[in-house]
């Protein structure tokens, strides 16, 4: 990175550290923090959408749709989430390949499961074996995002379902009395009003989502945990210009601090949003604002 880094042998102290921390691999490590933030940025709205769909389905007047919604909400609870992460990554991958197999290779007569192998025709492989490396990486990341969205969508559905039921019945009845249809009641009254009841649950969920991001490592994505293990391990002079002992402890300490800072900042931001949503609401939080003002 810096010009004086040309010959690492001659460096010591802080200059050595500054050169060490700016090697190409460390840049990839810093980039992995971007991966985590990207995952959060994509997953949070997707999970919220899944949750909204699940919660709306669970309170639908159509019985089969209601069962699907309720099953979705309850199925992802009660079992360790990490089991779902490990399960969905393989299951989704195989599901996609099976669907493509059905569509692309109609003439195939052998079973897909042969003993301990999962066999689909060449054209149905995802991604195609001829695809460049970055497609494989993007596909892996996409599977991870989808897995996170499904699992956290169920949690969000649970929170939103509770919030929809917490909206005072009188507000909906007033809307009906004004002649609004079911659909208008839902979109104009229920949806805007439910957020103040949903936010405590959703902010809790956001914290949990942040703390779940290291599980990306288990899904095979090269994230910060992967790089911390990789870079921190003992390096001998044969393989690197910057030999050092086992520093994994310090790398994970850095990750720990990163997460602490991240959750703390989120907490402060969410507090402000909550104060804003409480404004003028007929809840104890809203009352507290009125009396102090």
């Amino acid at each position: 990175m810096f010009s004086y880094c040309a010959d690492p042998e001659t460096l010591d102290g802080l200059t050595w550290l500054s050169c060490y921390l700016t090697t190409g691999k460390h840049m990839a490590f810093y980039g992995a923090f971007g991966t985590v933030l990207l995952l959060l940025a994509i997953t949070a709205p997707t999970a919220l959408a899944f949750g909204f769909g699940g919660a709306s389905a669970a309170r639908s007047s159509l019985a089969p749709l209601r069962w699907v919604g309720k099953a979705y909400i309850s199925i992802v609870r009660g079992v360790p989430d990490i089991a779902f992460f490990l399960f969905f990554v393989i299951a989704l991958d195989q599901g996609f390949e099976w669907l493509r197999h059905q569509a692309l290779c109609p003439g195939w007569d052998q079973p897909v499961r042969q003993g301990n192998d999962f066999v689909v025709c060449q054209a149905a492989k995802l991604p195609l074996s001829s695809a460049p490396q970055w497609i494989h990486e993007v596909y892996g990341f996409f599977l991870a995002v989808l897995t996170f969205a499904i699992v956290f969508g169920a949690f969000a559905a649970n929170v939103l379902y509770g919030a929809m039921r917490a909206v005072p019945r009188a507000q909906l009845e007033t809307a009906e009395a004004y002649g609004m249809s079911q659909r208008q009641c839902f979109w104009r009254i229920l949806v805007p009003q439910m957020w103040v009841y949903a936010l405590p649950g959703l902010s809790n969920l956001w914290m949990v989502l942040i703390k779940a991001t290291p599980l990306l490592f288990l899904l095979g994505v090269e994230d910060i945990v992967y790089w911390a293990r990789e870079l921190g391990g003992t390096k001998t002079p044969q393989f690197t210009d910057y030999p050092h002992g086992d520093w994994r402890m310090w790398y994970f300490l850095a990750l720990l601090v990163f997460y602490l800072a991240f959750t703390r900042v989120s907490e402060l931001v969410l507090e402000r949003i909550m104060a804003r949503l409480n404004h003028g609401q007929a809840t104890s939080g809203g009352d507290a604002q009125r009396t102090t003002a």
Binding site: K211, V225, D246, R248, M249, F252, L255, L256, Y259, L260
Partner: peptide, 14 residues
Amino acid sequence: GSPLFIQFFFAYFA
């Protein structure tokens, strides 16, 4: 405030 997963890793290497 920190993930249990990272706590495990940190403790093990420590």
